[in-house]
Amino acid sequence: MFVLTLRIALCLIVPFGAIFLLGAMPGVNLAWDFSNASGFIAGVLFLLLFAYTGRPLAQPRHDGKFFMVLHRDLGLVALAMLVVHVAVMLVDEPLVADQLSLGAPWPMVAGNAATLILLLLVPLSLASVRRRLWSTHRHFRRWHYAASVVILLLTAVHMIGIGYYTGAISKTVFWVALTVLALSARMFQPARPNLGAGGRRRKTARLASYLSIGVLCSGLLLAGIYSLLGSVDLPL
């Protein structure tokens, strides 16, 4: 569990540091920077969901439900960060609503489309709903994966196209590499994880929810610290 927490923390901090802090762009204002940092963290979480897909992994040695709950709750955290991204921006700059139409520049259309698909995907993927809509779990998984790939690609178009914080070529290449890595994560995961000797800990799903709440708090804290740093007269 400690290793998993550390991995998730690194997965959040390394891309955030590489894109927002290395060769940092000047801060705009507290709310704007907070909003965009939140949106970026939502994007990183989308990538992470391709690694923690809900299938049991060798580590931590928890029961299958832990991984399903982790995937579901990290997805909800990503949605929450996305809602923060959009809501804070609309409250701070109501004219941004002008960018929500189909006639907006293409990177904004991509971001809007990704948000709409995610808003549909999350409720449709809840166990009680998906069991009614899809006859087999295999069918559901195919649709869920396809929609997730579309979200990931649209997110990349949005982030790279808007290109304020991600403006440098090296940052674009970095984000494209992360997207490709996430899309190819399936290939690196063994069909059945090698567990070695010993059993799995049972009834640990609650830990996954606690971990996800921790990710949400850390994400908001990270965005808050960044927006504060961006607003002081440091060379950021």
Partner: peptide, 22 residues
């Protein structure tokens, strides 16, 4: 605006709907 801001000069807004379009 960004070029000026990064050179620590006074600059116009870089991302502000309120300042540019209100």
């Amino acid at each position: 605006h960004l070029e000026r801001l990064q050179g620590f000069h006074e600059s116009g807004p870089i991302r502000s709907y309120k300042a540019c379009h209100s």
